[in-house]
Amino acid sequence: MADYDADATELLETYDFLMKYIIIGEAGTGKSCLLHQFTHNSFKDHSQHTIGVEFSSRTVKLGEKRIKLQLWDTAGQERFRSVTRSYYRGAAGAILVYDITNRQSFQNLDRWLTDARALASSNLVVVLVGNKSDREDEREVEWAEASRWAAENNVHFLETSSLTGDNVEAPFLLCARSVLLSIESGSLDPDKAGSGVSYGDRALRRVNSSSRLSFGSLSYGRRKKATSKLRLKDYVPGTSNSKCC
């Protein structure tokens, strides 16, 4: 058994959590480009309208935890609304995108948020993203205004540029952090179906191999210290190789 554990070295692909995100917002706000920049680190030239829903994934690192993101990129066009609405279910996070050079896309945010809140799980974490921040000259939506809207609606907010890649990772990480926090606070249980989050192999191995408490070390902050203390206590009197089984 010890042999086996030693063999199971952690590769890049293993992760602690799997989260489902949905990317929403008006057509032409750059959702697909944002995602492309996030998953490929490059700008998607001559992007066409998304048809229905498209899928991609990426693993990110947040602190010491690896999180696999399954990203569902939706079409913003009205005619796809009936299709995309079905993808809110089972999403842990929503990246709500508007175009800072297009006031209309900002004004419609209420509708999108209402949809998201109504159709997704109650724990859905929403991050508002003002895209195309590289086109400052054509700005139609002020940062302060969007920030106010975000505060009023209790969502996170930041601006990005899919063209330059500026700040592109931030919304995804921000979202992941919020989800982790709500897992830690107990309001979200990754074991339940439909929560949009589930444990990865890596986290499971930890859960299985040591006490349930040591899972706490996955999350951060105050509890982490307490846990490590506990673990220390556990291991000090025991033999050195008591770690396994």
Binding site: A8, T9, L11, E13, T14, D191, K192, S198, Y199, D201
Partner: peptide, 20 residues
């Protein structure tokens, strides 16, 4: 999928292949 802990099943739970 998930480890028979509860009956609620998540299709994605533990859908990961270990290196071995």
């Amino acid at each position: 999928g998930n480890r028979d802990r509860e009956r609620s099943v998540d299709p994605d739970a533990n859908l990961e292949a270990s290196p071995t």
